[in-house]
C-alpha cells in the first residue's frame, strides 16, 4: 500500500467514527456530564441498522439505528433526571441492559452479516449480500473510473459528505433557542431553571441527541464493514474521548462551531495516529491501551504544564 492509500484508509475510518466523536462532544463538552451509554449505544445503532438493512431498507436502516438509540438515550436521561441516579451509573445501567437487547436484535447470536438467503434460478438457496449505502454509492461513482474505483476513497467521500451535513446541522441547531438552552443547561443548570426553562427536558434532549449521533456511527460502520458485531462497542467511549480531546488540543476551546469541527478533526487525526502506529508494527490489540494513554496524557497535561511552569519560576528566582 502506498502512503496515499494508507492516508485514505485512515481518513475514511476517522470519518466513520466522527459522528461518535460529535456525540461524545455533546455530552462531555456541552452537557458537561459524561455519558457512559456510549459503548452500548454504538452497538445498538449497529445491530438495528443491520436488521433493517437485511429487511431491505438500507437508507432507512441508518436512520432507524439513530432513532432507536435516541430512545436508549431517553432511558439514560430519565434515570438521571427522574430517578435521580448518578449520570455515570445511569449510563452504565442502560449500556448493560442494551447488551441483551443487542443480542436479541441480532437474533440471539453475537454477529450478523448483511446477507439474506434467496432461491436462485437452479432452485438452490444461496446467500445474497444486501445493498448498503456504500454499495449504492460505489455503483454510482465507479463508472467515473480512475481513483473512484478505490473502495476506501468511495467510503471516505460518502462519509465526508454525510459528516459535513451532520456537522452543519448541529452547528445551526446549537444557535436555535432549544439548542442554546441545551448549551446553557450544561453551563449553569440553575440559571436555566431560573429562566423558566425545563432544564431536565433540555438535558434529556441533549442525551438523546448524543446517543443518536453515536449510534449513527455504529450504523455507518455496519454498512462499511458489512456486518454487525457485539464486540464493536468495546472501548468506544475512550476512543471518542480521545478524539474529542485531541481535537481540543488542536482547536482550543473557542466556541461550539470550533468545538464541533475539532471533534471531527480529532477523530481523523486519531485514526492517522493509529495507522502510523500499525505501520510501526504495533499489534492491533494495543489500540485500547494507546487510546487510554492518550486520554490520560491529555487530561493531565494542563496540570503538568502548570507544575513545570511553577518549578521553572522557582529555579529562575533562585538563579
Amino acid at each position: 500500500m502506498t502512503m496515499l492509500n494508507l492516508l485514505i484508509a485512515a481518513l475514511s475510518q476517522g470519518m466513520l467514527y466522527a459522528p461518535m466523536a460529535l456525540g461524545v462532544f455533546v455530552t462531555f463538552r456541552i452537557l458537561k456530564t459524561p455519558d457512559l451509554t456510549v459503548d452500548g449505544s454504538f452497538v445498538f445503532g449497529m445491530t438495528v441498522c443491520a436488521a433493517v438493512t437485511i429487511a431491505g431498507y438500507p437508507i432507512a436502516a441508518l436512520l432507524c439505528g439513530a432513532l432507536a438509540d435516541a430512545l436508549a438515550g431517553l432511558c439514560t436521561a430519565l434515570l438521571q433526571t427522574k430517578a435521580r441516579i448518578e449520570p455515570i451509573l445511569s449510563g452504565i445501567l442502560v449500556s448493560t441492559g442494551l447488551y441483551t437487547v443487542n443480542y436479541a436484535v441480532l437474533g440471539g447470536q453475537s454477529n450478523l452479516y448483511l446477507q439474506r438467503e434467496v432461491i436462485n434460478a437452479q432452485g438452490a438457496a444461496v446467500n445474497e449480500s444486501c445493498p448498503t449505502v456504500y454499495r449504492m454509492f460505489g455503483k454510482l461513482v465507479k463508472p467515473m473510473g480512475g481513483l473512484m474505483k478505490d473502495a476506501n476513497l468511495q467510503t471516505l467521500l460518502l462519509t465526508l459528505a454525510i459528516v459535513a451535513v451532520l456537522t452543519a446541522l448541529l452547528a445551526v441547531f446549537f444557535f436555535t433557542r432549544p439548542g442554546m438552552a441545551i448549551r446553557a443547561t450544561g453551563d449553569n443548570e440553575e440559571m436555566v431553571r431560573s429562566s423558566s426553562i425545563n432544564a431536565d427536558r433540555m438535558r434529556t434532549c441533549g442525551v438523546m441527541l448524543a446517543n443518536a449521533l453515536v449510534a449513527f456511527s455504529g450504523a455507518l460502520l455496519c454498512h462499511q464493514q458489512r456486518y454487525a458485531d457485539m464486540n464493536c462497542g468495546n472501548g468506544m467511549l475512550v476512543m471518542g474521548l480521545a478524539s474529542v480531546i485531541i481535537g481540543q488540543v488542536l482547536g482550543g476551546r473557542r466556541g461550539v462551531v470550533a468545538g464541533l469541527l475539532s471533534a471531527v478533526g480529532g477523530s481523523l487525526l486519531y485514526r492517522i495516529v493509529l495507522q502510523l502506529a500499525y505501520r510501526l508494527d504495533m499489534p492491533s490489540y494495543f489500540v485500547k491501551l494507546l487510546s487510554t494513554l492518550i486520554v490520560i496524557l491529555a487530561l493531565t497535561l494542563p496540570r503538568l504544564r502548570g507544575a513545570i511552569a511553577k518549578r521553572a519560576k522557582k529555579e529562575g528566582a533562585r538563579a
Partner: peptide
Amino acid sequence: LRGTAPDM
C-alpha cells in the same frame, strides 16, 4: 457566578 452561564 450563580446567575450567569460562564461559557456563553
